[in-house]
Nucleic acid binder design. Structure first.
Length: 167
DNA sequence: ATTTCTGGCCTGA
DNA sequence: TCAGGCCAGAAAT
């Protein structure tokens, strides 16, 4: 069910105290956020649609806020349609997890009506195109375990720590 | 307590 | 169709 992934995309950088993130936008909104050091091809010079500029300013604000471990404000529109139906369900569900709160993969699975798909939920988290803002780092394994993190467990631990959760 | 095995579900190839 | 993954729970060390 993978659709067109060839959407014209604008990539813009976001300098933060933790490094330079790269945000990518499609015509529908923020479609990807990359951690510092991830194949960052900065292309600041280019025609940037006004709405993208606006989205990007919002992204910058919420990202910096999230990195401080504080609740974020208004998000730019998120373009998550690159994911499968299942993945989109998971990602939307993750947005319900508040700052400083953690769920288990099993709880997320149950919340989307697939109680036994906890493992697939892990897969969807790993495919999350917008980490930090779509808080997959707040999902832990059962039995108080940390679970994995595609962006590197260090990031997961750091993000949780900033939100007051130490593992 | 911790390692291993099994089961169940979604993807991409 | 199939192996493999940010899992969970039970069994076996």
């Amino acid at each position: 069910m993978k659709t067109e992934t060839r959407q014209a995309i604008v990539a813009l950088t976001i300098p933060t105290p933790d490094g330079v993130f790269v945000a990518r936008y499609s015509k529908d909104g923020l479609c990807r956020l990359d951690f510092p050091g991830k194949t960052a091809d900065a292309e600041a010079s280019r025609r940037i649609p006004p709405e993208v500029r606006h989205w990007h300013s919002l992204t910058g604000l919420v990202l910096k806020t999230a990195l401080k471990g504080r609740p974020i404000g208004e998000l730019p529109p998120l373009d998550l349609k690159a994911g499968t139906v299942f993945q989109q369900k998971v990602w939307k569900c993750l947005k319900r997890i508040r700052t400083g709160q953690t769920w288990t993969y099993g709880e997320v699975a149950e919340a989307i009506g697939s109680k036994t798909a906890f493992r697939a939920v892990g897969g969807a988290c790993g495919a999350n195109p917008i980490p930090v803002l779509v808080p997959c780092h707040r999902v832990l394994a059962a039995n108080q375990r940390l679970g994995g993190f595609s962006g590197g467990l260090e990031w997961k631990k750091l993000l949780l720590q900033r939100e007051g959760i130490s593992m």
